[in-house]
Design a protein around this nucleic acid. Structure first.
Lengths: 189, 189
DNA sequence: CGAGGCCTTGACCGCGGTCAATGCCCGTGG
DNA sequence: CCACGGGCATTGACCGCGGTCAAGGCCTCG
């Protein structure tokens, strides 16, 4: 089950077989059901997940009870509550499977071990941080310069799978609007 | 002039004198005037700046001509157009001094050299990425869950210097609102 | 087959943007 | 040193996007 991750890593890094085996050995397979919670608010993120199939989202709940989705990881992407994972402090967000699927989980301890024992793992981590930063940066920009309809149109262009595979409720919470607004936007196209 | 940076690095890292000297040697001193542009849209970010005094902001211009400020660095903080710097691709934002001040500039080539020759520099870079990610993450969250007045109140609490030292126009563009709205918010307090 | 969650539609409203006018501050040059 | 000009701040009138509340229909799953 780790071959999918192996391919992913080899595509991104010049990693030799020894290193690869050592890295893969630390990941644990995990099956998840739609709506299953992987991490709760106020807990500390103890795992970094690699999505083999299905999808996982990170979201937080506002005072008024509305959900806001920060990030959704599909196949071959990593996800965790990064702020919490980095500092090993309690998180303010939830991780939840948005479809039935399969994951590979890397514990924080294993992550640290890899950082200090496998040289290339530092480069991997840097790459992850760069991607996470870039993604977030782009999202912030889109929130500032686009209205809801523009964000929706752009999402269709960039991540059509998000609209196809997820509920309107989840998509709306990712766009930062209510279900009702999303519903109205869709008829206007 | 590099002693200020030396202190900053020693506070954050277990860096020895050899490494420190090597690192400091790559930074170049630069005096800047208020409103001076350090990087233009469509250029590639060739430097990472450390702010000795004054402040520098990163902003982009929306289609309608409105400015949106992404980040403002005060004393003892680093700034660049990170997406552009990482990939050495053209940026879509501007870097501008918001006060008269002094900087230390590290070129991209020097940065790469440090990454491959000074082991601890990788840790420095990881730390920078983590901080940049965390800052951006927090900003995105504040845009989603707070209205303009709440963001302003929070800014006063967290970065009072921003309101004290910068023009309303700049503060408004950082809050993602117009000058007029900021003006109205201030009388309401 | 029943129940609860999701989606849609309508009525209403408030936050923040737009446009415009005026006043103020400050840097620059005669 | 003063006069001028341009950018910045404030205030008012107006409006539109998107949120809120409510009702009704549909789909899914137990």
């Amino acid at each position: 089950m780790t071959s999918q991750l192996a391919i992913h890593l080899q595509n991104s890094f010049d990693i030799n077989h020894q290193e690869l085996d050592k890295v893969l050995g630390f990941f644990k397979y995990k099956k998840v059901l739609k709506n299953e919670i992987l991490l709760n608010k106020n807990e500390t993120a103890k795992h970094l997940y690699f999505v083999l199939s299905g999808s996982v989202r990170a979201f937080f709940i506002e005072e008024d009870g509305l959900e806001a989705t920060r990030y959704i990881a599909f196949e071959n992407n990593f996800i965790t509550s990064l702020n919490s994972f980095i500092k090993q402090e309690p998180t303010n967000e939830y991780l939840q499977a948005t479809e039935n699927g399969e994951l590979l989980a890397l514990s924080y301890d294993s992550f640290k071990t890899l950082l200090s024992t496998v040289a290339i793992w530092k480069d991997f981590y840097i790459k992850q941080l760069e991607v996470a930063y870039t993604t977030n940066h782009w999202r912030l920009e889109s929130f500032i310069k686009m209205d809801a309809k523009q964000r929706y149109d752009y999402l269709i262009e960039i991540y059509p799978q998000m609209i196809q595979r997820l509920s309107n409720k989840t998509v709306a919470s990712y766009l930062g609007i209510t279900q009702e607004s999303l519903s109205r936007i869709k008829v206007k196209r």
